Simulated assay, not measured.
Amino acid sequence: MAFYQLKKEQFINASLEEVWDFISSPKNLKHITPPHMGFDITSDNKDDKMYQGMIISYIIKPILGIPTKWVTEITHVVPKKYFVDEQRIGPYKLWHHQHILEEKNGGIYMKDIVTYEPPFGFLGAFANYLFIKKQLNTIFNYRFNIVNNMFRTSANQV
């Protein structure tokens, strides 16, 4: 079993309440996903605040514009500290995404830790080497820029 981790940190010059309100709302997922990914929430709860046990379904086009159904469950929530989403249906064999907030230096450090395993064993490992890792970095760099512009932060990516 080959699994991988992607870790990203960003300093946001905003209050904990502002950042939490933004990241804990599913309706903002489309806004922070690159347009070429064709991201659309298909579940009815996109306007709700996240809660433990929440199921969110969406369509995303990660490869060659082919629509893929993705369903995640919010498995852990500690308000204004962190939440975790885990894939239940989708393109990965394993997807575990931690969103962590920490007040520090007059702002918020936001950390994303994604643990994932592509499907198809060694073929998935090869696909990760060829394009999956690069694509995930592109998505998270896009998110960094959107959040940076939204909160007009001093671009500090750790």
Score class of each variant (00 low, 15 high):
Gly124Ser: 09
Asn105Ser: 03
Tyr129Trp: 15
Asn137Glu: 06
Phe120Ser: 11
Met110Lys: 04
Ile100Thr: 13
Lys104Val: 10
Gln98Thr: 08
Glu117Ile: 07
Phe144Gly: 00
Lys80Val: 04
Pro79Leu: 02
Lys111Asp: 01
Lys133Tyr: 02
Gln135Glu: 15
Tyr116Asn: 11
Asn141Tyr: 02
Pro91Ser: 06
Ile146Leu: 07
Glu117Cys: 13
Phe120Leu: 14
Gln87Phe: 06
His99Leu: 07
Tyr129Gly: 08
Trp95Ile: 05
Leu136Cys: 08
Gly106Phe: 12
Val114Gln: 03
Val78Pro: 10
Trp95Gly: 00
Ala125Gln: 13
Lys80Ala: 04
Met150Gln: 13
Ile100Gly: 00
Asn149Cys: 02
His76Pro: 01
Gln135His: 11
Ala127Ser: 12
Tyr116Met: 09
Asn148Lys: 11
Tyr92Lys: 02
Ile113Gln: 11
Thr75Lys: 10
Leu136Trp: 05
Glu117Pro: 05
Met110Asn: 06
Asn148Ser: 06
Arg143Thr: 10
Gly107Thr: 13
Asn105Val: 00
Thr138Val: 01
Leu130His: 02
Lys93Cys: 02
Tyr82Arg: 09
Leu130Phe: 13
Tyr129His: 14
Asp85Asn: 07
His99Arg: 03
Phe140Asn: 00
Gln87Lys: 03
Lys80Ser: 06
Gly121Pro: 07
Tyr82Asn: 10
Pro118Trp: 07
Ile139Asp: 08
Thr153Ala: 14
Thr153Gly: 12
Lys111Thr: 15
Leu123Met: 14
Lys81Asn: 11
His76Tyr: 09
Leu101Ile: 02
Gly124Ile: 13
Thr115Val: 12
His97Gly: 04
Gly124Pro: 10
Gln135Phe: 10
Ile74Phe: 09
Phe131Tyr: 14
Val84Ser: 08
His96Leu: 08
Asn148Glu: 08
Gln87Ala: 02
Arg88Trp: 07
Val114Gly: 04
Tyr129Met: 12
Asp112Thr: 01
Met110Asp: 05
Asp85Val: 07
Arg88Pro: 04
Gln98Arg: 12
Val78Arg: 13
Ala127Pro: 04
Lys104His: 02
Lys81Ser: 12
Glu86Tyr: 03
Asp85Gln: 03
Tyr142His: 09
Ile108Thr: 10
Glu103Phe: 08
Phe140Lys: 04
Phe83Gln: 01
Asn137Ser: 00
Glu103Tyr: 04
Leu130Gly: 06
Phe120Ala: 10
Glu103Val: 14
Asn128Tyr: 06
Leu94Ala: 07
Pro79Trp: 03
Thr115Lys: 10
Ile113Ser: 07
Asp112Ser: 01
Val84Thr: 13
Leu101Asn: 00
His99Ala: 07
Val77Ile: 15
Val84Tyr: 11
Lys133Val: 04
Tyr92Glu: 09
Thr115Met: 05
